[in-house]
C-alpha cells in the first residue's frame, strides 16, 4: 500500500471554477486538465506572492521537495492547457483550508482568534469588519 498523502494546507481556494480557451481554431473541444487546489496555491505563492519554495512549503505544511513536485505539476498542467487549448478546471485535490486565520478589511492585519477570546474584532484596529481568510471566495 502506498504511503498516505499528507494534506496540503491552503489559505484560500481559487476564486474561480476554471478557465476556458475562446476563439481557438480546430473545431472540437480538446478536453480539460484538472488543476488541484494545492497546485493553484503553489503557483500563487511562488509566482504571485513571490515566495521561495522553502517559505511556501512551510506555509502549506509540507516538505520543500514535495512542494517542488506540486509546483512542477501545476506548471506542466497549465502549459499543457495552453499548448493544447484545453480547459482548466479546478479540483479540490488533497487540500484543507486554514480556517483559523482572519483578515481585517480595514487595516489588512491578519490574526487568529484563540478560544480564550470571545469578541470577533480586529486585533489591531478593533474594527468589526473582519472576514475569515477562507470565506472571501
Amino acid at each position: 500500500m502506498p504511503r498516505r498523502r499528507k494534506l496540503r494546507k491552503i489559505v484560500a481556494p481559487p476564486g474561480f471554477r476554471g478557465y476556458k480557451p475562446y476563439g481557438f481554431r480546430g473545431g472540437r473541444n480538446n478536453g480539460h486538465v484538472d488543476l488541484l487546489y494545492e497546485e493553484y496555491e503553489a503557483i500563487k505563492l511562488v509566482d504571485y506572492d513571490l515566495m521561495n519554495h522553502l517559505e511556501a512549503s512551510s506555509l502549506m505544511g509540507i516538505s520543500r521537495p514535495t512542494f517542488a513536485r506540486i509546483y512542477e505539476s501545476a506548471r506542466r498542467k497549465i502549459a499543457q492547457a495552453l499548448a493544447e487549448s484545453r480547459e482548466i478546471r479546478t479540483v479540490y485535490g488533497n487540500a484543507y483550508m486554514d480556517k483559523t486565520w482572519y483578515i481585517c478589511n480595514d487595516c489588512n492585519a491578519r490574526f487568529t482568534i484563540p478560544d480564550s477570546i470571545n469578541h470577533y474584532t480586529c486585533a489591531i484596529c478593533k474594527s468589526e469588519n473582519i472576514s475569515s481568510v477562507t470565506s472571501n471566495n
Binding site: S58, N108, R110, F111, P114, S116, A123
Partner: peptide, 28 residues
Amino acid sequence: AAKVISGDFGPKAKDILTQMDIQMVIVD
C-alpha cells in the same frame, strides 16, 4: 502575553502559540 504581533510565524511556533491560546497577529 495574550497576543503576539509579528510579521510571520513558522509552523512550529504557530502550533505552540495555538496550544497556549495566544493570539497571533501578522502585520506585513
